[in-house]
Simulated scan of single mutants.
Amino acid sequence: MSVSHYLTRDDQLFESPKTLFGKIRTHRSGSCKKCFNLKTSGLVHLINGIRILAVNNRIKKPSTLERMARLKEKQVLSTTEYNTYRSAFTLLMKMKIAHHFLGKKEAPLPDNCIDLSRLTNSQKKELLHALEAVKVLQKKINKQYNVVWMNFFN
């Protein structure tokens, strides 16, 4: 049993960022009727997936972008996968930083909750595309490293 199996199981404890019908999974909290946690519903899955691939390919780089580059060099990720995951990661990080920067005006401590009703159609489309990449990576990792019987220990 490798550490990858445990990391994969832990990643599966969190819901996929997209619903069965291709919508963004939202969480209602307080006054926010269409909130999406950018970190726990998007970034965590992407970072964990890349980390699992890196660990299994003896890549010790601390940065997610560096890990992706090394995975591409080792041909673990195709050029298309690399470009897709890199774009998704970059977009999600830009949204997180922008939200934190804007959040300082609205609240003393920024959070990772994005109110989808405040995004433009273009931003929602970009976010959906990035979350599709996250979902594809989750499926890839699950297919390679999930051990079904471990789910009984949750």
Rank of each mutant, 00 (worst) to 15 (best):
V3S: 08
V3N: 07
Y6W: 10
L7G: 03
T8S: 06
T8M: 02
D10V: 10
S16M: 08
F21E: 12
G22T: 03
G22Y: 06
I24Q: 01
T26V: 15
R28S: 12
R28C: 05
G30M: 11
G30N: 09
K33N: 13
C35Q: 07
C35M: 10
C35S: 14
K39M: 11
S41P: 00
S41D: 06
L43Q: 06
H45F: 05
H45C: 06
I47T: 06
I47N: 00
N48K: 04
N48S: 07
R51V: 12
I52R: 00
I52Q: 02
A54D: 01
A54P: 03
N56P: 03
R58F: 08
K60C: 12
K60A: 14
K61T: 05
P62E: 14
T64Q: 03
T64I: 15
L65M: 12
L65P: 00
E66K: 14
R67Y: 02
R70F: 10
K72G: 05
E73Q: 15
E73P: 00
E73V: 14
V76T: 10
L77V: 11
T80R: 11
R86Q: 07
S87K: 15
S87M: 12
A88V: 01
L91P: 01
M93C: 11
M95A: 07
K96V: 09
I97Y: 07
A98R: 15
H99E: 11
H99C: 11
H100A: 13
H100W: 14
F101V: 15
G103Q: 10
G103L: 07
K105G: 08
K105P: 00
E106Y: 05
P108L: 15
P110N: 09
D111N: 14
